[in-house]
């Protein structure tokens, strides 16, 4: 076996490089397609930055003529293709332009909101994996056993609980009634320094992270469970058990490793979520993140910010799926050959 792998190494590496080049070459037109679609969707949708001014609560009527004048101020009277080429030209120079709303660079606005969303979604993802994998392995180890059944019911119950409802319920219970956790925000008004400051921030993270975690938990846990359950009945696990490995060793070393492939692929899809933010959770917890920025920018038709965020989202999604594919190719040589 070992000798055969050595002989195959050269051709295997070449195959991997070919695979990578092809994947990256495919990613570029995909990204371009995403950008074109977002640009068109945004600009062809009814409404404009001028009509969104003031928001729903402001009673001021602005005449159509005054709005037309404002459209000119934003450069929106230029033909669509011209605006697209201009925007692409700027992007090529790593310039995302200026927000229509406050005239600050789009990159500055994104940088401002990025840390809050990264912290929130990063922790949520880690927590999801930390909980989902043991649950999935334990449930898949004895399919249809008592743990599998109870965990399935609970996971599906969690999965189908609307997040806005759960969030408000948790807030009422843990913040208002018991006063254990902060209700909203990223830190206290007078945030303490050092370790106490870190604790303060973690306390603020607790509820939103919980809300983001409980839904995706079911998804990942069930995926791991089905992978492990399937692998468990395979010959190599039986063989491992026959070699005298304990059930736990057989499950984690052999069955789980085999079930890892779909999880890695799934991670590729989950990682971009780190950046996209969650509008509902961020609004409920008054969290100053990218989800709210994106949502508000769409409502106010702040085209440069929406395009900037979509572009970054597109790049990250493509990079993550690429990374997942590569990881999968390392894990499973069959994918390399067929690519």
């Amino acid at each position: 076996m070992v000798g055969a792998a050595g002989r195959l190494r050269d051709s295997g590496e070449r195959a991997l490089i070919r695979f990578l080049v092809r994947r990256i070459a495919l990613a570029i037109p995909t990204l371009f397609g995403i950008v074109v679609v977002v640009f068109l969707l945004m600009h062809l949708a009814p409404g404009s930055p001028a009509s969104a001014i003031g928001g729903a609560e402001s009673g001021r009527r602005v005449s159509a003529a005054a709005r037309a004048e404002m459209r000119r101020l934003y450069g929106l009277d230029r033909p669509l293709p011209e605006r697209f080429v201009q925007w692409l030209g700027r992007v090529a120079r790593f310039d995302l332009g200026e927000s229509f709303v406050d005239r600050r660079p789009v990159s500055e606005r994104i940088r401002e909101a990025l840390p809050a969303t990264l912290a929130l979604n990063g922790l949520a993802l880690l927590l999801t994996l930390a909980l989902a994998i043991p649950i999935g392995v334990a449930a898949g180890g004895r399919p249809e056993g008592p743990f599998d059944r109870t965990s399935a019911v609970m996971l599906f119950a969690l999965y189908s609980t609307p997040v806005f409802w759960a969030a408000l319920l948790l807030q009422t219970l843990l913040s208002v009634k018991l006063g254990w956790l902060p209700l909203y925000g990223v830190s206290s008004d007078a945030a303490p320094e050092g370790l106490a400051g870190l604790a303060d921030r973690l306390a603020h993270l607790a509820l939103p992270v919980t809300c983001l975690t409980y839904g995706s938990l079911a998804f990942v846990a069930r995926l791991v469970r089905s992978g492990v359950a399937e692998a468990r009945s395979q010959d190599f696990v039986t063989a491992a058990l026959a070699r005298g490995l304990s059930r736990r060793q057989a499950l984690w070393r052999h069955a789980f490793r085999n079930a890892l492939l779909p999880v890695v692929t799934l991670l590729g899809l989950l990682l971009p979520g780190l950046l996209s933010g969650s509008v509902i959770v961020e609004r409920i917890f008054a969290w100053p993140g990218l989800g709210r920025l994106y949502f508000d920018s769409i409502l106010s038709r702040d085209y440069p910010v929406v395009l900037g965020l979509s572009l970054i989202g597109g790049v990250v999604t493509l990079a993550a799926t690429l990374a997942a594919d590569i990881a999968a190719a390392f894990v499973d040589p069959r994918l390399r050959e067929s690519a």
Partner: peptide, 22 residues
């Protein structure tokens, strides 16, 4: 949606519309 709604109203491009005066 608000921005799309306002654009129709202020252009007079509608037949009937529910509005709030603030």
């Amino acid at each position: 949606e608000w921005a799309a709604f306002v654009e129709r109203i202020d252009a007079g491009d509608y037949e009937a519309a529910s509005l709030a005066w603030a």
